[in-house]
């Protein structure tokens, strides 16, 4: 699913690892900075000086930008800050990738969005209020949750979580973990990768393997 071969950047020296399809992985980095840098390499944002990165068996940095865009429509990423677009309302944020890639009308996925957010413990009144708001002032746990719903709507084969449980209280963290585990099990062959420098925050996740950098 993801194969990193001898990548060398300012921050990594001949780093190699492999993430197999259909599994749950925890990748433990040494710092937030290293976490960000690793994500940049995996997500096609920073080309390594040496080495190769494969995603779905395709050498990522050899692809054209159009091919890369197609490839990333199969990847869901939940970033630590939610990764929401500041000038779009919450509803517009959530439906953007599914609207862009599949051409589905936003109203077609309304039911799925409501269901996911209810599963996350959000009550209907808050949900209705939230959809028309801009994401800037929202608390970080809601931004992450919305980032998760947005990614999940695309039904990706690979889901990457960037330190999403850090700083959450126990109840929120447990609920969010359950949500991601349920999402993983919804489709056979789906891969989930939790990347974080805080091992404690992913303690509750049952992983098939743990990679420590």
């Amino acid at each position: 699913m993801i194969r990193i071969e001898n990548i060398t950047t300012e921050d990594f020296n001949a780093l190699s690892f492999r993430i197999k399809g259909g599994s749950v992985y925890k990748v433990i980095t040494n710092s937030d900075y290293e976490n960000r840098k690793l994500l940049n390499v995996i997500l096609g944002l920073q080309r390594p000086e040496h080495g190769r990165v494969f995603l779905f068996d395709k050498e990522m940095y050899m692809l054209s930008s159009k091919e890369l865009n197609r490839l990333f429509s199969r990847v869901g990423t939940v970033l630590k800050d939610g990764g929401l677009i500041s000038n779009l309302k919450v509803w517009e944020n959530i439906v953007l990738p599914v609207w862009y890639h599949s051409g589905n009308k936003p109203e077609d996925v309304e039911e799925k969005v409501v269901q996911r957010l209810k599963e996350a413990g959000m009550d209907v009144a808050r949900l209705e209020e939230l959809m028309g708001e801009l994401p800037g002032p929202l608390p970080v746990h809601e931004k992450r949750l919305l980032g998760f719903v947005r990614a999940a709507l695309m039904e990706p084969d690979l889901m990457i979580y960037d330190s999403v449980f850090e700083g959450l209280n126990q109840e929120m963290s447990e609920r969010f973990i359950k949500l991601t585990e349920k999402f993983h099990s919804e489709r056979a062959g789906r891969t989930s990768v939790y990347i974080t420098p805080d091992e404690q925050s992913v303690k509750g996740i049952k992983a098939d393997d743990i990679l420590r950098l």
Binding site: L43, G44, S65, N69, F72, V75, L84, I85, N87, P97
Partner: peptide, 25 residues
Amino acid sequence: SELGSMKVNNEADSLRIMGIDPVDY
């Protein structure tokens, strides 16, 4: 200013990792 602040807040990268070319969008 709007595009500049989107770049600073890594929103262009957020679009890219959703498979959306930020220049196109």
